[in-house]
Design a protein around this nucleic acid. Structure first.
Lengths: 344, 344
DNA sequence: CAACTGATGGCAACCGCTTGCCGTCAGTTG
DNA sequence: CAACTGACGGCAAGCGGTTGCCATCAGTTG
């Protein structure tokens, strides 16, 4: 068995460059990290030699004295959730752009795994981005004491956040439905504990009250396709012409079940979801939905986090509420004429 | 503006622990990294004190002299692709289990971004996992010279790989269709450059030849829903009772279009895809598909990579071809009786 | 009882880079 | 022309661990 197959010669260091250039290692270091601190010509010469030698500054070695690792941790409870990876992607793009590398910690819905991953990551990262977390508020505050931290789409007192504008998203979907002629609505609720669920329901009631509309609530249901199917069962006894689902998954399950029961959508019922997941345009009819600015959410979070790392006070961070956008597809239409459209 | 909000007192070091324990720093270090090299009682005492002080060994500092960073890079051309994140997840789980942290590099389909991300990651990682890459074979080999590397689902000479058993996946779907009574098939081809496309088509022909079946090829199409829609257009002029799509996305687009043209599935045409993406069970009819063992693919890749890092020779790595599994849903059924089922 | 041995702990160099501080030297200033 | 100034480079001390080597000492061995 040969010892090891890769990693031939060790990477060149500033000492190698220094020797070739005939200067002190500190000068090489400065040529890169403080170019103004060294003669322009010298710096240029050093850089040329470095390039030729294939020198790249070792981030580990740099991090040791400075604490500047150029890494941030992004923690997500579930990377397979279509809702999150756009956030992650936005975060990653923003981070890369600023010279930062992201350490992705997928906790697979397990609090223990999440803690472990974070625990492991903390010493090497400069900041933490909680894209979706199962941790308690207090655990989050605890973590925030160790590193600059920012949380996305969740409200934790004393911790900087970036969230979407839930009131706006509700307004957009209702404006749309009202314009089509709907007056009575059903909200298919998500998990009680979900912050977004409370926000949506409250906004919904406020809007309804302001516009003299009727809105009724069913649930709570799990935020899944199955949850939507169950909602459809319940819905049969309490119909309205329009339905607002907690999220797209619920909306899709709801439609699927209704169709299998013989309903014709959107003629009989108009449905709108939230999140604009990929599957919205794959199902039939395509699901009208409100899209949170996921990408922006992620990049904004990183910007604020980096500001925090840079020493900004939490309150100086940018306004944390981002606008949403309505995507109209085939699941919404004018309500059917009064004649009973479908039975049972 | 207050200077910075987080990071109060610096983390304790082995020096702090050593002082309290009344031993030399080297002894503290050994108490953790070489417990057999120090008296059991002493080690225990040190560990107790360390725990009390909240000492955690700084991975950066450790990495400097040893080169052992406990990090591996996972590069994916597109994390939003449902096909990849299960691989990533499997990889991440396996890595965590072995005490490794993963550095996720999402290149968003851009070769430049991928190169940059990798470039940045290389100095800090011990190994590289290419979950899906846009790099050329030679670029991959180049990178493999710098760090132990393993690539998933792609065949690159001289580079260790882990792939799914494409012949098997084709066999599974065709066995299923033949059993239902189909004899003539259409393959909706994916991108010419895609390794999997070639594998599938070849396996298909081999299988067809062996069983005396007819198989015809349409395409190539982009591996997307739109590609599937285009395929459906072409298909109208060349029908068969069964269709094998390059992947699920193509299959879904194909079905969608066919239905909108008035076909009734699976009565008129049976469709099977590859990959078993999430949307397969959301669409109507649910898409029968062959699932690659994504999770296993990821974890197996990490296991092999870690073996490589540990000094194993590339050839000692585990067998790299993983079995697939067929998921039967509603998109496949016995062929319609001879009477012309749908026109146009 | 003297020489030998293995277990244990300390010393100090080193990993690659950063940075405060000092020396040198050319260019200014009066 | 002497004193002063600022630009530029070098020196050396870290950053927090790891590890080869040596010293010590109790326990063995003959």
């Amino acid at each position: 068995m040969t010892p090891r197959s890769a990693k031939p010669r060790p990477a060149p260091t500033i000492y190698d460059v220094a020797r070739v250039a005939g200067v002190a290692p500190s000068t090489v270091s400065r040529a890169f990290s403080r170019p103004d601190r060294v003669n322009a010509d010298t710096a240029e010469r050093i850089r040329a030699i470095a390039a030729e030698l294939g020198y790249r500054t070792n981030p580990l070695a740099r991090a040791l004295p400075t604490g500047h690792t150029s890494m941030i941790a992004v923690s997500s409870s579930d990377i397979t959730n279509p809702y999150y990876f756009e956030i992650i992607r936005g975060a990653q793009a923003a981070a890369n752009e600023r010279g930062y590398t992201t350490l992705l910690a997928d906790s697979q819905e397990s609090v223990r795994l999440e803690r472990e991953a974070l625990e492991r990551a903390i010493p090497t990262v400069e900041g933490i981005l909680l894209a979706s977390t199962r941790m308690s508020d207090s655990a989050i505050r605890m973590t925030a004491k160790q590193r600059p931290l920012i949380v996305v789409n969740r409200d934790v007192t004393d911790v900087p956040t970036v969230v979407t504008d839930h009131a706006m998203s509700v307004r957009q979907s209702l404006d749309h439905l009202v314009e089509l002629g709907h007056r009575r609505f059903t909200y298919l609720a998500g998990p009680e504990a979900a912050w977004a669920n409370g926000m949506r329901w409250r906004s919904l009631r406020t809007y309804a009250a302001e516009h003299g509309l009727q809105v009724r609530r069913l649930g709570p249901y799990p935020p899944t396709v199955t949850g939507g199917v169950r909602a459809a069962e319940d819905f049969r006894a309490h119909r309205t012409t329009a339905v607002i689902a907690y999220n797209d998954l619920v909306g899709i399950g709801f439609m699927k079940r209704l169709i299998s029961l013989g309903a014709r959508l959107p003629r009989d019922v108009s449905v709108v979801g939230f999140d604009n997941i990929f599957a919205c345009e794959l199902v039939t009819p395509g699901l009208t939905t409100v899209a949170p600015p996921l990408r922006t959410l992620g990049s904004m979070a990183v910007h604020n986090l980096l500001a925090l790392i840079g020493g900004a006070h939490a309150t100086t961070a940018q306004p944390p509420t981002l606008p949403t956008r309505l995507y109209v597809r085939e699941s919404t239409d004018v309500p059917a004429t009064r004649k009973r459209a479908w039975a049972v």
